[in-house]
Simulated assay, not measured.
Amino acid sequence: MQNELKYTVRSREIVDLATAMKNSSLTLSPYFQRNLVWRDAHKRDFIDTILRGYPFPQIFLARGKIDVENMTSSQAVVDGQQRLNAIREFIDGKLEVDGKSFRDLTSRQKEDFLKYEVPVIDFDLEAGDPRLKDVFHRLNRTYYALSAIEKLASEYSASEFLLVARALAGEILKTEVPIEELGDVGSEDDAETIPGNMFSRDPGIEEATWDWIVENAEGSFATLIRTEAIFTTFEFDRKVPLMFSLNVICTYLAGYYNRNDRVRKFLDEKSEVFPEKKELFSVLNATADFIVQMNLNKSSMWWNKANFFTLVVELARLPKLREQAPVDAGIKLQVMEQNLSSEYSLAAREAVNNRAQRDLRGEMVRSALEAPLP
């Protein structure tokens, strides 16, 4: 059959997989993957399965092109990311099972754990092969099925529009994420930064585009998103801040709309070229700086996702609102919160993502910020 997908079925010892994760020849979170979503309870149950010698379903890996000069190759996890991460955390001492981490096991138990054979299916797929994402999506249709935003993040991984949203959501860092140095497996050596392999980012992203995105990452908006209690840890795991950022961008460009209706449209239209990206970074970072200087109380309703969305959009779309002193704007919002109308309260509590509710909240926030100081 033409274009038949080649794969090999085999087993690999945990020590082999742990070493590959350590030296970054195995990418745990390639560009098409989701975030880590397993809770500690899931991780402990899984490690206990290994310690008892019970079997578990196979993991799927993709092998990239072989570097014939250096005689090396890179691999990426297509399915099994959560399981391999649990193994890495247990070995690193970040996860305990029945009060014990890897270093607390006896020598025999450590050896048995590291020699445990993991069933592996190896696909012969290079980083840019479109079948890679197709296989990933097919393998994630059931348990812990991909959410809408996780599917979009994988499908449009090379989109310039998505990259801007990822940077604003705090998903892109200026430096590689440190990978724990395992040393002799289970050591406590300091973490070191190891460059990712060919699967670390979508090969369809041009080098200049990626460099520009990285240069503009970790700005004021991304910092605000990650430091205030707007999203829970679980929501970060499921990429909720990314969908939030996409909707902020789309609303800035086109006004309020229903739910996520404009997101795919803009992802398609501005996939290769996003001329407003510099403007977006500038405006949203300035908006974030303004919000920080408002000195809003940590328990303020404005850190609620729906209210925060409205506040960001209004301040971003109407620069005149940012011409006043941030502290004065903060006082006005405090007064609005203390005298909150039932109409606004309902629009911030029910059907919050419908256009009618978004329009209403926007109008009322705008009026509050345009009003004179009490």
Rank of each mutant, 00 (worst) to 15 (best):
Q324E: 04
Y344Q: 14
E350G: 10
P326Q: 06
S341H: 09
G330I: 10
M336D: 10
L340H: 10
E370P: 05
Q334V: 09
V352W: 08
V365M: 04
N354F: 07
L369P: 08
E370R: 08
N339D: 10
N339A: 09
K332Q: 07
N339K: 11
R358F: 00
R322M: 02
R355T: 06
G362I: 00
D359A: 00
R358P: 01
V365D: 00
I331T: 05
A351H: 13
G362R: 02
E350H: 13
R366L: 06
N353S: 10
K320M: 03
S345Y: 14
Q338A: 11
E343Y: 08
R358V: 00
A368Q: 08
G330E: 10
R349H: 14
E370G: 04
M336A: 12
L340D: 11
I331F: 09
L333R: 11
Q324T: 04
S367H: 06
V352Q: 11
K332P: 09
A347S: 15
L340C: 14
M364L: 08
R349E: 14
A368G: 07
Y344W: 15
A325H: 03
Q338T: 11
Y344N: 14
L340P: 12
R322S: 02
A348G: 14
S367A: 12
L346F: 15
A351K: 12
Y344R: 15
S367M: 07
V327Q: 09
D359M: 01
Q338C: 09
N339T: 12
E337H: 10
A348V: 09
M336W: 11
V352S: 11
V352M: 08
N353L: 06
M364T: 04
Y344T: 15
A329I: 07
L360M: 02
Q338R: 13
L340M: 15
E337W: 08
Q357E: 06
A348N: 13
S342Q: 15
A356R: 04
P319D: 02
A325M: 01
E363Q: 06
A348H: 12
Q334F: 09
G362C: 00
S345W: 15
D359L: 01
A347R: 15
L360E: 01
S367R: 07
P319N: 02
V335M: 11
N354R: 10
R349C: 12
N354E: 06
Q338H: 12
E350L: 13
K320V: 03
L360N: 00
A351C: 11
S367Y: 07
L360Q: 00
E370M: 08
L340V: 11
A348T: 14
A368W: 07
P326Y: 05
A329P: 07
Q324W: 01
A325L: 05
P326K: 08
V365W: 02
R366W: 05
D328G: 03
S342Y: 14
E370A: 04
E337F: 10
Q324C: 04
G362F: 01
R358A: 01
R322G: 02
Y344C: 15
V327S: 07
E343T: 14
D359S: 00
E343P: 10
S342I: 13
A368Y: 07
K320E: 03
E350I: 14
A325F: 04
Q338I: 07
K332V: 05
V365A: 04
S367V: 05
N339R: 10
E343N: 09
A356F: 05
L321K: 03
R322I: 05
L346E: 15
L360W: 01
V327D: 07
E323S: 03
R358H: 01
L346A: 15
A348M: 13
A329Y: 06
